[in-house]
Design a protein around this nucleic acid. Sequence first.
DNA 1: TTTTTATTCGAACATATGTACTAATATATA
DNA 2: TATATATTAGTACATATGTTCGAATAAAAA
Lengths: 195, 195
Amino acid sequence: MVSEKQKNILNFINIFIEKNGFAPSVREICQGVSLKSTSTVQYHLEKLIQSGLLQKNYKKSRALTVNNQLSNKKIPILGEIAAGSLLMAEENVIGTVNYPNTDEKSDLFALSVSGDSMIDEGIHEKDLVIINKNEPIKNGDIGAFLINNSEGTIKFLKNIQGKQYLVPANKNYDKIPVNENIQPIGKVVSLIRDM
Amino acid sequence: MVSEKQKNILNFINIFIEKNGFAPSVREICQGVSLKSTSTVQYHLEKLIQSGLLQKNYKKSRALTVNNQLSNKKIPILGEIAAGSLLMAEENVIGTVNYPNTDEKSDLFALSVSGDSMIDEGIHEKDLVIINKNEPIKNGDIGAFLINNSEGTIKFLKNIQGKQYLVPANKNYDKIPVNENIQPIGKVVSLIRDM
DNA sequence: TTTTTATTCGAACATATGTACTAATATATA
DNA sequence: TATATATTAGTACATATGTTCGAATAAAAA
């Protein structure tokens, strides 16, 4: 799909941005990859854009952005989980956190932990848990769940005698049987604690 | 030194880059900060460059780069703490981790936690603790220490009856009195756990 | 007040830069 | 072979963009 020359160009753009902090012009790409015509570069840029590896802004100078698979994503921190559909609503975003090495497929957000129901797993109040909405919660995983379309919570998902339960990591709390009132949000993939 | 308008412009540039992935043109800055003349913007850009907050490339379009104090740093992960002086030796670096929002003054490294001496604080084996060598460890802080110039450990630093101790967060371990064999490395400033 | 400094504007200029068009050449495919 | 596709080049164009100059205004200092 993408030729060697195109990979070459993409690589040049990446290195250029890394080094200079801004993208190269079409003519600078010419020089960088040993092509004599701007329209040849234009041609390859089109291909790269079609392949989804690059983005351009019509008629804007140096307005190339590379769709890196591993990029440093700014992901939203949600305060309250209000309701399923409103999950990512602007009004619930209380901040953002930089989260590195994120591939584009993962749909991440961060949640500030409230309560101590996972304390025995070393998940404290005010810790930031990173949740991937696109990663299914398997047996034994820690996941984020929405209860009664109103309350968000972090729990283990465990299969006990053929039935699924949300299991806290705190002896003072009981496990909750999974039923139609419980909606999985995504798997907890990381924990960040600032001290 | 820098006026409100200049801070305003710098902020606009920052947000623009964050959002678009490339810097604004002079005229886009005009619009963004409600100025009608490009030369006025030029004037302020000069000031910002003189203040060292911004960098420009002569006659290149959208070639502004912001000298951010908070950058995304790649910091080393140390395996074993061998000896004080050899602390950051290449051979001990077992990897790197991206750590965002780091100011230049802090001298950070990461340590993979071994053992369970801080388990009651929710610091698990294989968690990554981020340590700032330039931040002093105060009473009550969790810090990294080097014992007998050979063994590295994460503990609370606590003042008990006028004496300083390294205090574990695990009842199965005893506290260790601080003496000349114990060397502070830095404060634990963050915890990262991937699951 | 006068003088200096900071800020803003408008207009014009030079060119850096993205784009479009046509043609030539190479490479692959039928 | 002939036909289609991919790649490269050259030229020209339109304009987006950084830059410069002069002057007016506002704010601060003397």
